[in-house]
């Protein structure tokens, strides 16, 4: 594959075979330009989480290359990997906040890759980081929550902390793993909207794993369909018709699902967060 200058992330022949013998990814190739939000859809077990985790090597790929601005992350030694991970913010399904720490400590832990051990252990974060953390908390709608403990927050609030933690890394790309799977429909939309707005504001690219096709169509610039570890669709959300969904997920009456999509679309302006932001 030819790597061009404006490609932020290029996956080449990425494969993962787990020790159990499961082939989660088979020869996946994908190129993501800077600033593009790509949603990854597919049935459970299609390899969506594995793909995202192979990018920052929480899962080691068995074969293939992961080129971040031309540098192969899959071949980096430990210190290089740490530097590469700083440039990739990750957001998790179950938020993955350190529950017993405060909101502020959770957000600041996004800076660990930039700090030496003693500074981080003594919690002596640079003043710039602290200012950035306060600004981000304000931006994600959690001003005044800095000293609350993470386990005292609701699901939506926790995910906002997770977003702030990813963004304080000053990443170039967000890796987002099922950000809304544990949230109610309304909070899901607010969270997806927030992620997409922040990507646009900061010019970030994102790969977002998502189960909810309607939500994906609503927010994605590009949709990639994964089935049994292989890419079976790659195109704009508008192309995602019933036949494509059948190719990704298998046979099902997709017209019924489409009607609810349109109902969903009508509700959008009522979203309280959007109204709040419009007032602000």
């Amino acid at each position: 594959m030819q790597v061009s200058a404006d490609d932020l992330l290029v996956l080449e022949g990425l494969s993962k075979r787990y020790p159990t013998g499961d082939r989660a990814l088979r020869d996946v190739s994908l190129r993501l330009p800077a600033g593009q939000v790509t949603m990854l859809i597919g049935p459970s077990g299609a390899g969506k989480s594995t793909l995202i985790r192979c990018v920052n090597r929480l899962v080691e790929p068995t074969a293939g290359r992961v080129l971040l601005r031309g540098e192969d992350v899959a071949r980096l030694p430990a210190s290089g990997l740490r530097r590469a991970r700083r440039r990739m913010g990750m957001i998790f399904q179950e938020y993955a906040l350190v529950e017993r720490l405060t909101v502020m400590e959770n957000v600041l832990s996004g800076r660990l890759g930039y700090l030496d051990f003693w500074r981080s252990t003594l919690r002596r974060y640079p003043a710039d980081d602290i200012a950035a953390a306060f600004a981000l908390l304000e931006r994600v709608g959690l001003g005044g929550f800095a000293d609350k403990r993470a386990d005292a927050l609701s699901g939506g609030q926790r995910q906002r902390v997770g977003i702030a933690r990813a963004l304080i890394q000053s990443p170039e790309i967000l890796l987002v793993d099922e950000p809304t799977a544990s949230l109610d429909p309304k909070t899901s939309r607010q969270i997806m909207r927030l992620i997409c707005e922040l990507c646009a504001e900061k010019g970030l690219a994102a790969i977002v794993n998502i189960h909810d096709v309607a939500l994906a169509k609503m927010f994605a610039q590009r949709i990639v369909g994964l089935r049994a570890g292989e890419i079976v669709f790659d195109g704009p959300p508008a192309d995602l018709g019933p036949d494509i969904l059948t190719r990704i997920y298998g046979e099902e009456d997709w017209t019924a699902a489409r009607e609810t999509d349109e109902d969903d679309a009508d509700e959008r302006p009522e979203d309280p967060l959007r109204l709040a932001e419009a007032r602000a």
Binding site: R85, G89, R100, G110, R111
Partner: peptide, 28 residues
């Protein structure tokens, strides 16, 4: 909880930082 550990690893933290920021708070 291993995902809290993953989350700290994903920020580019070193092994020792993972110990002090993800594991220690959970076992305290």
């Amino acid at each position: 909880d291993p995902t809290q550990v993953e989350a700290i690893q994903a920020t580019g933290a070193s092994r020792l930082q993972v110990l002090t920021h993800a594991i220690a708070p959970q076992v305290m």
